Simulated assay, not measured.
Amino acid sequence: MSNARHREWLIAFALILPFLVIYGLIFVYPTIRMFMLSFTDARLIGEGDWVGLENYTRLPGDRRFGTAFWNTAYFVLLTVVPGTLVALAIALGINRLKGRLQAAILALFFLPYILPVSVVYLIWDWTLNFQFGIAMYLFDAVGLDRIPVFKTTTWFMPAVAFVTIWWTCGFSVLLFLAGLRAIPDEIYEAAELDSSGRWTTFARITWPLLWPVTALVLTIQLISQLKIFDQVYLFSTGGRVNDNLVLVYYIFQRAFQSDQGGRAAAIAVVLFVIVVVVSVLNFQLTRLSGRSR
């Protein structure tokens, strides 16, 4: 028995070894190097001198870091919960459809998710561009003043948040649909026999049973939106770049534009810690909230 068990352990280790090697090379080693680099004054390429915590102690007094931090928090506020609610509403609507109509409507909502960010940028630039955007001609038709959506600080983040929800909610819709289809029909039949209304059925049956999926969607959305970069980078072209900074964009500026690898690594470490802490807290709180229902 001991030899058979030993052989099983060897086979299991041999099967997971390729994953461990790839995971170590792609994630673990770069993460360790990032932490080490954050304590130096190194450029993007090459070694640097050890400066200890200097890169971290400079962050509270860095105005652009403060702007990037609060813009990221604002963007998360605009996208995570609203995007989850929008996806839930769409999933509830699609779940009531049947057959090919359901498949067609689901495909329409999922299609934006598979588009590359460059295509998403072009679509919404054609729509909301101040000079030639389709929406601006509609504003002209009803007598409203044109709004430079992506050129003003006030409208930039809400506009990018709207585009992001449109772009990414398709995946969340799929998760919610999977959760809805996992709820047994017998529960709804019993609710019908009790003359339960639509809202009561949702509040007492659908929402509590769907809560684990909701917690998962919220966590995925939170992690994704904390790492926002592509949309902000593209839509900031020709606008007030420093006013629209988010944390990943600021890391990009420090590393690739200012050639300050050590300071960029320190910001990346701060973002890494924020993502881990906030994601774990969010998942645990939502899971505990679901248990109390």
Rank of each mutant, 00 (worst) to 15 (best):
R96A: 15
S38N: 14
Y233G: 07
E54S: 10
W207T: 00
C169V: 11
I165T: 13
Y250G: 02
V51G: 10
V149Y: 11
L44V: 13
F256A: 11
T153W: 02
N71H: 03
I11P: 04
L222E: 00
L288G: 14
T72A: 06
T154G: 14
V217Q: 00
F19W: 11
D41M: 07
W207L: 09
T79D: 07
P116R: 06
A68H: 11
A91V: 04
Q131C: 00
D194K: 10
Y137Q: 14
Q284L: 14
S236R: 00
N244L: 02
N71I: 03
T57M: 04
L271K: 06
L222C: 07
K98W: 15
A141T: 07
F109H: 11
P184I: 03
R181V: 03
A4W: 03
L271Q: 11
G238F: 04
V278W: 00
V270K: 05
V81S: 08
V81L: 15
A135H: 09
I165P: 05
G179R: 02
Q253F: 08
W211S: 15
P148K: 10
I205W: 01
Y74P: 02
E47M: 10
F235S: 01
L88Q: 00
R5L: 14
W167I: 02
L210E: 00
G24E: 04
I220V: 10
N71K: 03
L85Q: 01
V278M: 05
D62Y: 03
L122W: 06
Y121F: 15
L106E: 13
I26S: 09
I134W: 11
G179M: 06
Q221A: 13
D62R: 02
T219R: 00
F35P: 05
Y29S: 06
Y29W: 12
F156C: 09
A12V: 07
W9G: 13
M36G: 10
I11E: 03
R240K: 12
S118P: 08
T152M: 13
A107F: 15
S38E: 10
W155Y: 13
F13R: 05
F65G: 10
P208T: 06
A141N: 09
F162A: 12
N282F: 01
A264M: 11
E47Q: 12
G93I: 05
R254K: 12
